[in-house]
Design a protein around this nucleic acid. Sequence first.
DNA 1: GTTGGAGTTGAACGATCGTTCGAAAGCGAG
DNA 2: CTCGCTTTCGAACGATCGTTCAACTCCAAC
Lengths: 207, 207
Amino acid sequence: MAGPTRDQKLETLLSAAAKVFAERGYHETSMRDLARASGVSLAGVYYYVQSKDELLYLIQTRNFEAVIAGMRRALQGVTDPIERIGRFIDNHLDYFAAHMAEMKVLSHEAGALSGEYLQKVNDMKREYTRALMDVLADVERAHGPAHLNRRVAAYSLFGMMNWIYNWYDPLGDVGVEMLSQNVCHLFLGGYVGLPVSDAALPRSSAG
Amino acid sequence: MAGPTRDQKLETLLSAAAKVFAERGYHETSMRDLARASGVSLAGVYYYVQSKDELLYLIQTRNFEAVIAGMRRALQGVTDPIERIGRFIDNHLDYFAAHMAEMKVLSHEAGALSGEYLQKVNDMKREYTRALMDVLADVERAHGPAHLNRRVAAYSLFGMMNWIYNWYDPLGDVGVEMLSQNVCHLFLGGYVGLPVSDAALPRSSAG
DNA sequence: GTTGGAGTTGAACGATCGTTCGAAAGCGAG
DNA sequence: CTCGCTTTCGAACGATCGTTCAACTCCAAC
């Protein structure tokens, strides 16, 4: 029965920090709050992390990396553009709903970083946005040019999906599957001007 | 040539504060920053405002009141449910684009208030959300039940519209009219399963 | 039993925070 | 000029912030 490794303790710290950041906000949260929430002393936090900034940076990048990796996995081998969009949305909302605190910190605390940290996160953001725009381009190639500006459509979709930390409760009466299906319907119905049959919508075959 | 009245100076202070809050964030901004940005001394700020909290509260309520008032004006006399939605979206985005800093503070700094201030703002939020939900109910009465959860649809629309402070530049190549039309298309096409003719979309007849 | 590194801590550092207050400055009315 | 009221300010308050550091405990290795 070996005790928790260093990485595991860091993970625990990040998890606790994400929860507090999500509740009180990054700048409103003190390192003393984090120490209390994670069960170590104030100085102890600095054994696992170099600074408060790095703490936020680690939360953002680790989860963003997971979202991007899941997206690649979900899109792999899928050729139908409509279904690719569905998978993209599905992956995003599934991960968001399963990691509400972390994703709220990623979405809401975007401007709290600076310097190299900010640059790295912005690079990931650019990559992820590019991926969605590429899928949208695929759709237009297959179904003819949309009567919507592609960039507006992309950021509108991100708006729908990233805004949910303001209202959505994964444990409420709206399940994640319903949420995802609704967002798919809403976006696809508006972007490709056709009513989308329910059968065309993917449901997470790969958990 | 009477000097600026007290209310005008308060308005100037609120405007400067909104700009700084939007750039640096509420908690990241110090009262000394605000004093510098608005051209008065640190103590001078407190002649116009009781606290930093009240400053944020005033920015949020004054602009939210303007949005709600504009919405009532835009919906007045309009009976077609589809056009009512268009007017709702139009009003929201027009005001947002014209007051980016203030609306970013309203959207992004929602959790920074507490106590009575928070309650008042939340009341307005509930009122505004209810107004949208009512319009959506009208649409369903006229066009049959949507295949979307009404609450999900409403918050998705709010997500699209309120997320724009993360990417939209009113002076860029996407004009406010185009933005508003695109969001209308996107939402209406997805909510009522029909392609929406461009003619059905309202363009701010009442400036 | 002794050594040495990993893990943890209490106490303190200087800096900055929101807010207060007494005094001074500006200024129309008498 | 002088009074009274509004407006402005420098200076300071206590509190809290992120961070540091020397000292301590713990435990496997020798």
